[in-house]
Nucleic acid binder design. Structure first.
Lengths: 209, 209
DNA sequence: TAGATTGTTAATCGATTAACAATC
DNA sequence: TAGATTGTTAATCGATTAACAATC
């Protein structure tokens, strides 16, 4: 959509945080906010907020600030929450189940519409109201349902191979929960959630702060 | 331990990635590697690797490179994987279960030794071989078992209150899975895993790359 | 209109990259 | 010893912060 100058990763990763803050304000029926006020709530600088937002357009008004409803909508759009992205989960373990059941993810507009596993005992059982299907069915399912995203919650040994298959089946983005770096064609979006990396960073922080 | 100059967050977050790469090399029985080779494997610059490592000490040798075993050990230490950190999980849902069962996390030296919930139906049942206890027991448990880390996998409405309690009970670090920013005393280490933020970043990438 | 606050340009700060003397 | 490669200092690049004219 907006491909002005290439927005930095740091800016992108702040957008969901803005969204959370704006959501709170909205629920408190606050109508407008200045970059200054917002910066205090979020422990950022006002300058950074204005700079960040200006990557995507002009959302404020001099002398007034930002309309919360409008800014919330705008950032939501940028993050694709109105795209109706369809998600499948590969791997019906605890992580796959957690994602499938997550209201939070659903509320942000990412809809889990299929779950796949290779364990025959699980096939046909349901998570939420979604039936677990055999992984052999995934190719057909992706094509006929125009799936956008695959969440990979499978053992790391299998992840690379499955990821490559997903690409050939036409998936646009991979949400990877295995502790490996996927090397895939440029046009495939990848987002990693490396829990073991995360807890080690916590370990570092405990020792050093 | 090593509190030289204050190492930047970016450097810290690369450490687990180094560790993963070194682990692979180790399993391939490779004994040594130069920053150049390592940089190619990891899609970084050799300069950055040397700069990163130099924040923590001198691990290499001119003309030789880095001993993989030694570097692996050194980074592991920096990340606290030898500290025998004890972890409790608050919330025995799917996320809590996933963490508890994770071999990866255990292999990195973070030991889940207790799980707590407020759902009476769950009390006494086990995950792995750990009994779920009522949350009323958590204070006593933390003190008598010298727990370091609490993983918070509970609904976001309850997270702030529980987090504050954890602090008073003497927890050193919080691994927070709720989509809120915790404001706690400086000396408490916090690491957030915001899955909904993560999938929105993926949504952005799909639209823009 | 006067005050407030934006979007943007310029200045600063920090992180990454390049270069190289030290040394294994 | 000669070649390789480190750790570190200097240069560059990018991100954050400050300043301010534009304008609601």
């Amino acid at each position: 959509m907006n491909s002005r100058k290439e927005v930095s990763e740091a800016v992108i990763r702040r957008l969901p945080k803005y969204l959370r803050c704006l959501g709170e304000l909205k629920s408190k029926k606050v109508l407008r906010i200045s970059s200054k006020e917002l910066s205090e709530r979020m422990s950022l600088t006002a300058s950074q907020i204005r700079q960040d937002l200006s990557c995507f357009g002009e959302f404020g008004q001099q002398g007034y600030g930002y309309n919360i409803e409008y800014l919330n909508e705008s950032i939501s759009k940028i993050l694709g929450t109105y795209n109706g992205f369809k998600v499948i989960v590969i791997g019906a373990g605890n992580m796959g189940t957690a994602i499938t059941k997550s209201d939070r993810i659903k509320n942000r507009g990412f809809n889990v519409v299929g779950i796949f596993d290779n364990n025959k005992d699980l096939i046909g059982t349901t998570i939420g109201n979604i039936k677990i299907q055999h992984i052999d069915k995934v190719k057909e399912f992706i094509k006929s349902n125009k799936i956008d995203i695959a969440a990979l919650t499978i053992p790391k040994e299998q992840t690379e191979k499955i990821a490559e298959k997903m690409v050939t089946y036409g998936i646009k983005g991979l949400w990877n929960f295995s502790a490996i770096e996927l090397k895939l064609p440029e046009h495939i979006a990848i987002e990693n959630v490396h829990l073991s990396d995360s807890i080690m960073v916590l370990g570092y922080k405990i020792n050093n702060e």
